[in-house]
């Protein structure tokens, strides 16, 4: 059976790609952020997951608000990035994993999550920045990625209790897949930030750190928040916490925190990097 070996939370902002492209990792501004990553890279290189299930939100590359899926899943063998409007250089394609993707899609719809199923899907910085952070130099082609995209832009959007349940349903779907695959799950984005409005620039360090604590030991507590609570406490884009919550939902067995690095600010956001080791529940 397929086995979820761990979950990772990470930021996905475009400024990271720019910093890496310009070799700024060791500058005083970026060092405290990038210094968090080597232990996570080492873990990935040691454990060698076959598949990454990656929760992210599209920021207007594949999807526009003419049709905005609440939840979408990619089932393709390959995904491409494209110009997002500010000239991030074109990067190598991302490898997909069609069979497990379809299995998850089937399982989710049967489970009451009516996904938008995508055989072609341009993936934006929300997906590519985390991959490049884990395998710098865009060396992520060997790992198969299943994109799961959550609407974090337009209200109504799925509530934390729903995204947590989505994660749990994906966890069950992976457990019922009959091939021996090692799967790691990335929850990307956040943490607290607000880009728009006179309130732009708020960061809530205390709340972010509390969220990381709860992601480890009491994820159910996070499902008590509504999206408007998150907007109020963690900023308009604080709702990206939903991706971290979804990731934690997939970890249906035992978790152990192996590594954490919280740093703020990077660009306008609080950045929460965390590595959780996961042991699948006994059958």
């Amino acid at each position: 059976m397929a086995n979820i070996i761990g979950g990772i939370t990470t930021s996905h902002i475009p400024a990271i790609a720019n910093a890496m492209a310009n070799g700024l990792e060791e500058t005083p501004y970026w060092k405290p952020f990038f210094d968090g990553y080597p232990p996570v890279r080492d873990w990935l290189n040691e454990k060698k997951p076959d598949v990454i299930i990656l929760f992210y939100n599209d920021h207007g590359l594949e999807f526009f608000i003419d049709k905005k899926p609440t939840f979408a899943i990619g089932v393709a063998d390959e995904y491409h990035n494209a110009d997002e409007g500010w000239g991030i250089p074109t990067i190598p394609p991302v490898t997909g994993e069609s069979d497990l993707s379809w299995h998850i899609a089937n399982s989710l719809v049967e489970d009451g999550f009516d996904m938008t199923i995508c055989q072609e899907m341009k993936v934006d910085h929300g997906l590519t920045v985390p991959l490049n952070l884990m395998w710098p130099g865009y060396n992520y082609g060997h790992v198969k990625v299943i994109p799961v995209c959550i609407n974090c832009e337009q209200h109504p959007m799925p509530q934390p209790k729903r995204t947590y349940a989505l994660g749990q349903a994906i966890g069950r779907a992976v457990a019922s897949f009959d091939q021996d695959l090692k799967v790691a799950v990335f929850g990307t984005g956040g943490m607290s930030h607000q880009l728009d409005g006179e309130r732009a620039g708020i960061i809530n360090r205390e709340f972010d750190i509390d969220c990381l604590d709860k992601l480890v030991s009491d994820p159910e507590a996070l499902t008590k928040y509504s999206n408007l609570d998150l907007v109020e406490i963690a900023g308009a884009q604080g709702v990206e916490l939903n991706m971290l919550i979804a990731m934690r939902g997939t970890l249906i067995g035992e978790v152990k925190e192996l590594h954490r690095n919280y740093h703020a600010p990077i660009s306008n956001t609080g950045s929460g990097l965390m590595l959780l080791e996961h042991t699948m529940p006994k059958k």
Binding site: E153, H155, P156, Q194, R199, S226, N227, L228, V231, A236
Partner: peptide, 16 residues
């Protein structure tokens, strides 16, 4: 908390 009731959050334009 835990309701999604509309509320005014100063300096914030909810994209609804």
């Amino acid at each position: 908390m835990a309701t999604n009731e509309k509320r005014d959050i100063p300096g914030t334009y909810l994209f609804d």
